[in-house]
Amino acid sequence: MAYSKCASCNSTSFESSIETPKNSRYKLQFIKCASCGAVVGVMDYYNIGALVQKLAKKMGFDI
């Protein structure tokens, strides 16, 4: 089985942090190396799919 590694330091430990980038109105969830802090991925703060499904149900759609 392959393990994910940090491209900067080869660590296999990661953490997430929620931050608002400078000049942005939106929060993002950054996936970072727990050892050196290098960002390896970025995700939306909110689960967009869940929000759309909740809105659709309020509008009467059967999803």
Results as ranks from 00 to 15, higher is better:
8 S>Q: 15
26 Y>T: 11
46 Y>W: 06
35 S>L: 10
26 Y>H: 09
18 I>C: 03
11 S>M: 09
16 S>P: 04
40 V>L: 01
44 D>S: 13
53 Q>R: 10
61 F>Y: 04
63 I>T: 12
45 Y>T: 06
41 G>S: 06
14 F>C: 02
32 K>Y: 14
18 I>V: 11
28 L>A: 05
32 K>E: 08
56 A>W: 06
41 G>R: 02
28 L>Y: 14
58 K>H: 00
6 C>I: 14
45 Y>W: 00
24 S>M: 14
15 E>C: 08
45 Y>E: 02
41 G>K: 02
29 Q>E: 03
51 L>M: 12
5 K>T: 15
52 V>T: 14
56 A>G: 08
11 S>I: 08
46 Y>D: 09
27 K>M: 02
54 K>R: 09
15 E>H: 06
18 I>K: 14
48 I>N: 15
1 M>R: 05
33 C>E: 08
37 G>R: 07
49 G>W: 05
31 I>K: 11
40 V>E: 00
29 Q>M: 05
62 D>Q: 10
10 N>C: 12
60 G>T: 02
20 T>C: 13
37 G>C: 05
56 A>I: 07
56 A>D: 06
25 R>T: 11
36 C>K: 09
38 A>C: 13
47 N>V: 03
6 C>W: 15
48 I>R: 15
39 V>I: 15
42 V>Q: 03
6 C>M: 12
20 T>W: 01
49 G>D: 09
24 S>H: 10
27 K>D: 06
48 I>K: 15
7 A>P: 14
19 E>C: 03
16 S>C: 07
48 I>L: 13
19 E>A: 11
30 F>G: 04
32 K>V: 14
49 G>L: 07
21 P>K: 00
55 L>I: 12
11 S>H: 08
3 Y>N: 03
58 K>Y: 06
12 T>W: 09
38 A>F: 13
16 S>W: 05
37 G>L: 15
18 I>H: 08
26 Y>N: 12
51 L>R: 12
46 Y>L: 11
13 S>L: 04
21 P>D: 00
6 C>G: 13
57 K>I: 10
9 C>K: 14
3 Y>G: 01
20 T>R: 09
24 S>C: 09
15 E>S: 15
28 L>M: 09
21 P>A: 00
37 G>Q: 08
48 I>S: 12
41 G>H: 01
21 P>Y: 03
22 K>L: 00
10 N>I: 07
19 E>F: 08
56 A>P: 01
62 D>M: 11
53 Q>H: 07
3 Y>K: 04
19 E>L: 04
39 V>G: 00
14 F>V: 06
34 A>F: 10
63 I>M: 08
37 G>Y: 08
15 E>L: 08
25 R>K: 14
28 L>G: 04
29 Q>K: 05
24 S>T: 05
18 I>T: 13
8 S>C: 15
56 A>S: 09
55 L>E: 15
53 Q>C: 07
27 K>V: 09
1 M>L: 07
36 C>W: 10
23 N>A: 01
63 I>E: 05
